[in-house]
């Protein structure tokens, strides 16, 4: 009898649960079968009337029924709930995120920052100097005599006979050495000016990084080592380089450093004027006349100096072909980097 009831309840439940359409229907079923006064609870009440010998078997069957009903119920409840969430959710996760604006540093600043960190790692200090300079610091102390053709190498904006806009960051070398005794190891970034017609390749102002190291045993070999290490860090380990003799009044011997053109890998292209090489910096051993102007003993001390243009390096690195774009400050350009 009870066993028959169990079988019937099983059947009824299967039918009822198949008809469930929503959470409301399901709740009715829960009350009907699993509620405190539900069908299953009532079946358990009937267990006391079952003969003692049959009790374990019937009890087991009854328990199974309860487990079965509960589990089917829960399964349906979960699936109905998620269906409901999907239908009724108020959050559209696909909407665009809100905008948070973060500024960018000018690409020239970023280029300089990268260079600064390499040289700082090599023990260089960082110093600055004025842009409106005297003829003495910009030329004379750097062994550019008056009326010397070497002055033509740097077209100059003059304020008057004695003051000018610095044409290179080298005057900071003099200012630094005037103020300290060797050893001096520093880089000196800054803005410089040249009286040159504005075009895609040249602008009337640009930025340089100057380097200087003076001590008792500084050699040209160490200059080469330092600059090669810099180039490897900045441009990559597999780069080829060469040092060519050149002329700067404030260094002797003087050199220019070329690296393999990274546009054509040395094959020759219009960027490297079909030479396969790109000049990246000028350098040399500090001229004894420069030491003389800052009262350093050139028999005791030797030193090297180097200088490189930041725009040129940024142009090469980022494939920028017109220098003027740096100073137009087009917001779209600024935001690119």
């Amino acid at each position: 009898m009870l066993t028959d009831n169990i079988t019937r309840v099983k059947k009824d439940f299967s039918k009822d649960i198949a008809d469930v359409k929503d959470i409301g229907d399901l709740e009715e079923i829960r009350i009907k079968y699993l509620g405190r006064n539900g069908i299953i609870s009532k079946l358990f009440d009937q267990l006391k009337d079952v003969p003692k010998d049959d009790k374990p078997a019937v009890g087991k069957e009854l328990n199974l029924l309860r487990i079965n009903v509960t589990s089917q119920f829960e399964k349906l409840q979960t699936s109905l709930a998620s269906e409901k969430d999907e239908k009724e959710s108020k959050v559209d996760l696909t909407l665009p995120g809100k905008k948070y604006q973060i500024g960018s540093k000018h690409i020239l600043t970023q280029t300089l920052d990268e260079m600064k960190s390499i040289f700082k790692g090599m023990g260089f200090s960082i110093h600055e100097g004025p842009e409106l300079e005297s003829d003495y610091y910009n030329f004379e102390a750097l062994n550019f005599p008056h009326d010397h053709p070497a002055r033509d190498m740097q077209d100059t904006f003059f304020i008057n006979e004695d003051f000018l806009l610095r044409t290179h960051t080298s005057p900071v070398q003099i200012r630094l050495m005037e103020n300290m005794k060797p050893p001096v190891r520093a880089i000196m970034p800054g803005r410089v000016y040249r009286n040159e017609a504005v075009s895609a390749r040249s602008y009337c102002m640009f930025h340089q990084v100057e380097g200087l190291y003076v001590d008792t045993d500084v050699t040209f070999a160490e200059l080469k080592g330092t600059l090669v290490a810099f180039a490897h860090q900045y441009y990559g380990k597999d780069l080829k380089y060469r040092f060519r003799p050149s002329f700067f009044p404030f260094t002797e011997p003087s050199a220019e450093m070329d690296i393999t053109c990274f546009m054509c890998k040395g094959e020759g292209c219009n960027i490297c004027k079909y030479t396969g090489w790109l000049e990246i910096l000028g350098c040399g051993m500090v001229h004894p006349n420069v030491f003389k102007s800052v009262n350093y003993d050139s028999e005791k001390y030797t030193g090297y100096a180097f200088g490189m243009g930041i725009e040129r390096i940024a142009m090469l690195k980022y494939g920028i072909t017109d220098i003027r774009i740096f100073f137009e400050n087009d917001f779209r350009f600024l935001k690119q980097f």
């Binding site: 520093a186 040209f220 070999a221 080469k224 090669v228």
Partner: peptide, 26 residues
Amino acid sequence: ARISGYHNVPTIPRISITLDTKHDET
């Protein structure tokens, strides 16, 4: 140096650094 070639000057792979205070004005 220039007639014998700058490539003949060695490129030394290490430098010494003094331990005095380094400044960064920037």
